[in-house]
Design a protein around this nucleic acid. Structure first.
Length: 880
RNA sequence: GCCGGGAUGGCGAAAUUGGCAGACGCAGCGGACUUAAAAUCCGCAGGGGCCAAAAGCCCUGUGGGGGUUCGAUUCCCCCUCCCGGCACCA
C-alpha cells in the first residue's frame, strides 16, 4: 500500500521527539491526530465542499442544529448536538439529497456585557473573538457546515432585519407599548434580568439589597393574536415529540369560560367608587357553580385593591404582605405550594344571578396576570377555594350533585370539594336540575343578554415583552417626538446602528441612554428634535427567524428571498436541547405565522421534524464549573481525536436520553477506531480485486456467513437512520461486523496472525468479499467518524468524494439466515433448542423438539395440551 | 401540587415493545505475546445452588406489590424513588 509508506514518512519529526517510538517500526497504532489534521486542512481549503446546491434537481433536505451562543468554548452538549446533526447531514448527502446544513451565532446577550465589565473588552470584540475560537473548534471536530451562509446575529446586516420586522409588527398593530414590571436594584440603579436576582430576592451584586419591582413602558409583540392557531397547529406537528407538543399546549393554556361582573354593593361604598370603577370582572370556567359562590377573591395587585385600601393603612399593610408572599413563592418556583392567606376587605359584591351580597377578599393565591385577576370563590366545587374557605370559615354551599349510572349514587351528597364536570345543578334557582354542560351554555347566554357577562376564551399565553434595558442587543427602531409622539424610524433609515465605544457599566439604567449622539435625533415627520428608544430587543427575537436567513444569507434588500426560502422550508429536521421546548420554539412558530401573513413565505410552520436530545452529564450531575465535573471537548479531541469524541457521544446512550460521560468509555471507542484501521492495514486487498459482490454460491460457509453479517449490518444501520435514531445500536452493529470480519480473516490464508506471525489455513475469504466488507465499513462509518472514513477510503484506492458516495444498499436475500436456532419452551420455560432450516414448518420443528433429550425428559409423564409456534422465534409446548 | 420522562449486571446500555433478558462497549478476571511493560490477540463473566473442581443441571432475576396471558422488561391496576418543566390557571 503505497499511501501507507508516504504517511509513515510524515511522522518522522514526531518520532524524533519520542525516542522510544523508534523501536516501534511495526507499531500499527492509528495516529488520529496526524490523520485528522491532514483531512481538516484539506477540507478547509475547499469552501464549496459542504455548500448547498442552487437550482438543484435533487430533493432538498434542510437539517439544522440550534445555533450556539458564543460563550467562548464549545461544551459537550454542543458536541453531542452537532454530532447528531452532522451524521444526519452526511447520511442525506450519501443518499443523494441536496442538503442545507448551516451554522451561525446567537451572539447578542447579557454575558457579553458582563465580560465587557470584567475584562474591559468591548462586547463586540469579545463576541467576535469567541466566534473565531468556536468556529475553529467546530472545524477541528470536522462538522460539515456550509460556512458561506454563516449568520451572526449581532452584526448590522442581520439585526437590521429584526428592526425591519419590528416595524412590520408595528404597522400591523402587533407591536405596542404598555407598562410592565421589571426587577430593579436600587444600589445598581438598573434593571436586572431574572437570572441576576438571587433566590432570596436580592441583587446578584449586592447580596443584601432587596430587588424592587418597577413599572416601565415596554414594547410587546401580540403573540396572543396567534394563540388559537399556535395551539391548533400543534396537532399537525406529527414529527415533534409528544412531550414538546404537550408542554406547548399547557403553555398556551386555552380555557373556555365566562366573564361575569360582580357589582360592588353601593351601600358599603357611600363614599363613592375609586378609579377602578364599581364592578369586579371575574373569569370562571364553571359558571354553573355560581349559586355556590360565597365570596369574591382579588389578586393582591388587582387595581380595585388600591381603591379599597385607600384610607385604610391596616388593609394596605396586609395586602403588601400578601404581595411579598406571592412574589417569594413565584421566585422559588413553588407558587403551587403557597400557604394560602387572605384578608377580608370589609366590602361586599352582588352576585348578578341571585343578587346575593357576598364578601370581597384579597388572597395571595390569586394571580393578576391570569384571567382578570379576580375569581368567584365556590368552596364546594374547587379544591383551592375549599381549602381557603375552611381556613377562614367561609360558607360552603353545595350546588352540584354527581350523576351516576348507578341510581343509588345519583343525588347523594358527594365528598367535598366535588369538582367533577359532569354533575347536575341544585340550589340554583331556575337552573336547578340542569346538567353542568347545559347550564354553562344557558347561564352564559343569560349573562350576555342581561349585560353583565359573556362566554369567552382566555389563554395563559401572554404577549411577548421584547424590551430590554441593555446595550448588547438590537436597537428598537422607534423615536419619541415632543410634537408627533411615537414615530417609527423610516425603513430607508435602517439599520439603526448600535453605537460602538459605549461605556458599559451596570449602573444608571440603559447604557444607550447615556450616548447623546445616539439618543438625540430629528423627527422624520416634523424635523423637530426627537429622542431614540434606548431599549434593545430580547435575544429571542434573533433566534425566531435566523433559519430563514440561512437560505439567503447575503440579501441586502430583504430578510431573504421568498422563492429561495420556499424551496428550503420547512426545515426537515431541527435538533436541539429540550430546554428550548417552549420559548424559542413557540416564538419561532409565531414569527413564521406572522411572516406568512406578510406574504413572505407560504409554510405555516417552520419545522417539520424536531428532535430533542438529552443532556450530557458527568457522575450523575449536570456539568458545571462549581461541581468541577466539566469535560472539555478540546481536551477530548487532543487526547482521543475528533472521531472518537463524536463517536462516543453517539455511542454512549440513545440521543434522546441523558448521557453520562465516562472517560474510560471514550477510550474504548479509541480502541475501536484503531481496530478498524488495523483491519485495513493487515488485510490489504490486491489491486485487481475490485469490489464486485461475489455470488453466495461461490462462497464457503464461513465466507457466506461473513457476507450475511455484512448485509444484516447495512440493514440495521440504515433502518436506524430511517427510524428511531438509536445511533448507539448503529455503532454496535458496525462493531459486530468488524469483530466477525476479524475472526474470519484470522482464519483465512490471506493473512498472518498479527501476534504470532503464524499462517493459519482456514476458510478462504475471497478478496472480492473482503473488498466489499472494507468498502461498506467505510461507508457505514462515514456519517459518524468522517476523518477515519476518509483516510481509509483513500487507502483502498477510492477516488470518488466519500461525502457524496452512495450509501450502501443491502440485499434482503443475502441477509437472510439459512438456519435458525429455535428455543423450545415447556409451559413457558426454556428447556432446549433445535436448529432447523429457516423455512422449516411448525410440524418439523415440533418433531425435532420432541426428539431432543432435554425436551423429552421435561415432558415425560405429561400430555401435550397445545403448542404455540411463533415463526422464526420460538416454540412453546403447553403440558398438562 | 400539576404535567412530562425515567428505573434492566460493578458501569453505559441492548432486546426495533407480548416470544431465548443482558447484544455492543467500559471496568474486572484468566491466558497468549514480551526480559518487562505498553499495545495487541484469545477466553470467562447477572445472582444463587448442587459439585473438591469442571462439565452439566436446577432455582432465581428487568425499582416494589398484584393482575391478564401458554408466555410480561414490554399490556392493566396500586405503590416507591430519580430527572426535567411549570402557571394554585379559576
Amino acid at each position: 500500500m503505497p499511501q501507507q509508506d508516504k504517511s509513515e514518512a510524515t511522522t518522522v519529526t514526531q518520532r524524533e521527539r519520542e525516542p522510544e517510538n523508534r523501536e516501534r517500526e511495526n507499531d500499527d497504532r492509528y495516529d488520529a491526530q496526524r490523520v485528522e489534521m491532514k483531512w481538516s486542512e484539506r477540507w478547509q481549503k475547499d469552501p464549496q465542499l459542504y455548500a448547498a446546491e442552487r437550482d438543484s434537481a435533487k430533493k432538498k433536505y434542510y437539517v439544522l442544529e440550534m445555533l450556539p451562543y458564543p460563550s467562548g468554548a464549545l461544551h459537550m452538549g454542543h458536541v453531542r448536538n452537532y454530532s447528531i446533526g452532522d451524521a444526519l447531514a452526511r447520511y442525506m448527502w450519501m443518499n443523494g439529497y441536496n442538503v442545507l446544513h448551516p451554522m451561525g451565532w446567537d451572539s447578542f446577550g447579557l454575558p457579553a456585557e458582563n465580560a465587557a465589565i470584567q475584562n474591559n473588552t468591548p462586547p463586540r470584540q469579545w463576541t467576535l473573538g469567541n466566534i473565531a475560537k468556536m468556529k475553529a473548534q467546530m472545524n477541528r471536530l470536522g462538522f460539515a457546515y456550509d460556512w458561506s451562509r454563516e449568520v451572526t446575529t449581532c452584526l448590522p446586516d442581520y439585526y437590521r432585519w429584526n428592526q425591519w420586522f419590528f416595524l412590520k409588527f408595528y404597522e400591523k398593530g402587533l407591536a405596542y407599548r404598555k407598562k410592565s414590571k421589571v426587577n430593579w436594584c436600587p444600589q445598581c440603579a438598573t434593571v436586572l434580568a431574572n437570572e441576576q436576582v438571587l433566590a432570596n430576592g436580592c441583587c446578584w451584586r449586592h447580596e443584601d439589597t432587596l430587588v424592587e419591582q418597577r413599572e416601565l413602558e415596554q414594547w410587546f409583540l401580540r403573540i396572543t393574536s396567534y394563540a388559537d392557531e399556535l395551539l391548533r397547529d400543534l396537532d399537525k406537528l406529527e414529527g415533534w415529540p409528544e412531550k414538546v407538543r404537550t408542554m406547548q399546549r399547557n403553555w398556551i393554556g386555552r380555557s373556555e369560560g365566562t366573564l361575569i361582573d360582580f357589582k360592588l354593593d353601593y351601600a358599603e361604598n357611600h363614599k363613592g367608587f375609586g378609579p377602578a370603577g364599581s364592578s369586579i370582572g371575574v373569569f370562571t370556567t364553571r359558571v354553573d357553580t355560581i349559586y355556590g359562590a360565597t365570596s369574591v377573591q382579588l389578586a393582591p395587585e388587582h387595581p380595585m385593591v388600591a381603591d379599597l385600601a385607600s384610607g385604610n393603612p391596616d388593609l394596605r399593610a396586609k395586602v403588601d404582605q400578601l404581595i411579598a408572599e406571592q412574589r417569594k413563592a413565584k421566585e422559588a418556583g413553588d407558587i403551587g405550594e403557597i400557604e394560602k392567606h387572605g384578608v377580608f376587605t370589609g366590602r361586599y359584591a352582588i352576585n348578578p344571578f341571585n343578587h346575593e351580597r357576598i364578601p370581597v377578599w384579597i388572597a395571595n393565591y390569586i394571580l393578576m396576570d391570569y384571567g382578570t385577576g379576580a375569581i368567584m370563590s365556590v368552596p364546594a366545587h374547587d379544591d383551592r377555594d375549599y381549602e381557603f374557605a375552611r381556613k377562614y370559615n367561609l360558607e360552603i354551599r353545595l350546588v352540584i350533585l354527581p350523576i351516576s349510572n348507578d341510581p343509588e349514587e345519583t343525588m347523594t351528597e358527594p365528598m367535598l370539594p366535588f369538582t367533577a364536570h359532569d354533575g347536575m345543578l341544585i340550589n340554583s334557582g331556575p337552573y336547578s336540575g340542569m346538567d353542568s354542560a347545559d347550564a354553562i351554555k344557558t347561564m352564559s347566554r343569560f349573562a350576555e343578554q342581561n349585560g353583565f357577562g359573556k362566554a369567552t376564551v382566555t389563554f395563559r399565553l401572554k404577549d411577548w415583552g421584547i424590551s430590554r434595558q441593555r446595550y448588547w442587543g438590537t436597537p428598537i427602531p422607534m423615536l419619541y417626538c415632543e410634537k408627533d409622539g411615537i414615530v417609527p424610524v423610516p425603513k430607508q433609515d435602517l439599520p439603526v446602528l448600535l453605537p460602538e465605544n459605549v461605556e458599559i457599566t451596570l449602573a444608571g439604567g440603559s447604557p444607550l441612554g447615556r450616548v447623546p449622539e445616539f439618543v438625540n435625533t430629528t423627527c422624520p415627520k416634523c424635523g423637530g428634535p426627537a429622542r431614540r428608544e434606548t431599549d434593545t430587543m430580547d435575544t429571542f427575537v434573533d433566534s425566531s427567524w435566523y433559519f430563514y436567513r440561512y437560505t439567503d444569507a447575503h440579501n441586502a434588500h430583504a430578510p431573504f428571498d421568498s422563492k429561495v426560502a420556499q424551496y428550503w422550508f420547512p426545515i426537515d429536521q431541527y435538533i436541539g436541547g429540550v430546554e428550548h421546548a417552549i420559548l424559542h420554539l413557540i416564538y419561532s412558530r409565531f414569527w413564521t405565522k406572522f411572516m406568512r401573513d406578510l406574504g413572505l413565505i407560504s409554510n405555516d410552520e417552520p419545522v417539520e421534524r424536531l428532535f430533542t436530545q438529552g443532556m450530557v452529564i458527568k457522575d450523575g450531575a449536570k456539568m458545571s464549573k462549581s461541581l468541577g465535573n466539566v469535560v472539555s471537548p478540546d481536551e477530548m479531541v487532543a487526547r482521543y481525536g475528533a472521531d472518537a469524541a463524536r463517536l462516543y457521544s453517539l455511542f454512549a446512550a440513545p440521543p434522546d436520553r441523558d448521557l453520562d460521560w465516562q472517560d474510560s468509555g471514550i477510550e474504548g471507542i479509541q480502541r475501536f477506531l484503531g481496530k478498524v484501521h488495523r483491519f485495513f492495514k493487515n488485510n490489504p486487498v490486491s489491486d485487481n480485486a475490485g469490489w464486485q459482490r461475489p455470488l453466495p454460491a461461490q462462497l464457503s460457509p464461513s465466507a457466506r456467513s461473513l457476507q450475511r453479517k455484512l448485509h444484516q449490518t447495512i440493514k440495521r444501520v440504515t433502518d436506524d437512520f430511517q427510524g428511531r435514531w438509536h445511533f448507539n445500536t448503529c455503532i454496535s452493529a458496525i462493531m459486530e461486523l468488524l469483530n466477525e470480519a476479524n475472526r474470519r480473516m484470522l482464519g483465512s490464508s490471506d493473512v498472518v496472525n498479527p501476534v504470532t506471525g503464524e499462517h493459519v489455513k482456514g476458510d478462504e475469504i475471497p478478496s472480492g468479499l473482503l473488498a466489499d466488507v472494507q468498502r461498506t465499513l467505510v461507508l457505514l462509518l462515514a456519517p459518524f467518524a468522517p476523518y477515519l472514513a476518509h483516510e481509509l477510503w483513500e487507502s483502498i484506492g477510492e477516488t470518488e468524494n466519500l461525502l457524496k458516495a452512495p450509501w450502501p444498499q443491502y440485499d434482503a436475500a443475502l441477509a437472510k439466515e439459512e438456519e435458525l436456532e429455535i428455543p423450545v419452551q415447556i409451559d413457558g420455560k426454556l428447556r432446549g433448542r433445535v436448529v432447523v432450516p429457516a423455512d422449516a414448518m411448525e410440524k418439523s420443528i415440533l418433531d425435532a423438539a420432541l426428539a431432543d433429550e432435554k425436551v423429552k425428559s421435561a415432558i415425560a409423564g405429561k400430555s401435550i395440551v397445545k403448542t404455540i409456534y411463533v415463526p422464526g422465534k420460538l416454540l412453546n409446548i403447553v403440558m398438562k
